[in-house]
């Protein structure tokens, strides 16, 4: 009920403000009934409740994602974390800001840790054998369990973790899970790519983000992406 109520609220507000002529609206809650004319240049991607399981389990790790997509890339995003009374927002080429009831501050990521001291933020759920093998063989072994992609990326912005990895199994994260968190991370100076370094694309023919996604505060991003590819190749060879 919370999920649907918030989805309806966000859609009504955005549609009232921006209309249907220039904008398309895609929400996790309404996606299946919308299939699918997305010819607008500007597309709102909305996840009204990211981290549903954590919301139900009362961990506090849930978030709202709102992203505006142009030419398959995010140009504006909001990640709201209600239990922290915080929203993170970013626009393309203008940086990331953290807003609380007390203040608004820019966020710039800096770290001088060694590769072994980096901390991975991982899911409590969504685990499978291939991902577990990868996590066990990376050079950085510190892990912190956080729910919701938005909250995971917020943990990196708060410099309580350094890396987030998504590796699809039978299912994959959807555009609305990733787009808003991506922009708040990259505008703060982080990186969010496929394992091969290529950028993510949204509002394509497939709403799923298949494969390996690597998000980090940028230090060692390329090295660790290459290492992840090597470890997965090793795993796949072992399974043959």
């Amino acid at each position: 009920i919370a999920d649907i109520t918030v989805s309806q609220y966000i859609l009504q507000r955005l549609q009232a403000a921006f209309g249907d002529e220039d904008f398309t609206y895609i929400s996790e809650e309404t996606y299946k009934s919308q299939l699918q004319e997305q010819n607008s240049q500007l597309v709102w991607l909305i996840d009204p409740l990211d981290g549903t399981k954590d919301f139900i389990d009362k961990t506090g790790d849930y978030a709202i994602h709102i992203a505006l997509i142009q030419d398959h890339r995010p140009i504006l995003s909001i990640v709201a974390v209600p239990e922290a009374e915080t929203i993170y927002y970013a626009t393309k080429d203008s940086g990331t800001f953290k807003e609380t009831p007390k203040a608004t501050v820019p966020i710039t990521l800096l770290t001088e840790k060694s590769i072994e001291d980096l901390t991975l933020v991982v899911s409590r759920s969504h685990r499978h054998e291939r991902l577990n093998y990868l996590l066990q063989h990376l050079p950085c072994q510190n892990q912190k369990a956080v729910g919701s992609v938005g909250c995971k990326i917020a943990t990196i912005l708060e410099q309580k973790a350094d890396i987030y990895i998504s590796l699809s199994g039978k299912s994959a994260p959807k555009d609305w899970d990733i787009a808003a968190p991506e922009l708040i991370l990259t505008e703060a100076g982080g990186s969010f790519t496929h394992f091969d370094g290529s950028p993510l694309r949204y509002n394509t023919d497939d709403i799923n983000q298949w494969g390996g996604l690597f998000a980090s505060n940028s230090n060692y991003h390329q090295i660790l992406c290459q290492e992840a590819q090597r470890i997965l190749l090793e795993f796949d060879n072992l399974k043959r």
Binding site: T5, Y9, R13, L14, A80
Partner: peptide
């Protein structure tokens, strides 16, 4: 204008957060 769009989206984000927060705490 992206700044104007952002101002509306931020307000929507805060209000949506209030709604979820209320459900989460059963208030």
């Amino acid at each position: 204008d992206l700044a104007e769009i952002l101002a509306i989206a931020r307000d929507v984000g805060w209000k949506a957060a209030d709604i979820l927060h209320s459900y989460y705490h059963g208030t």
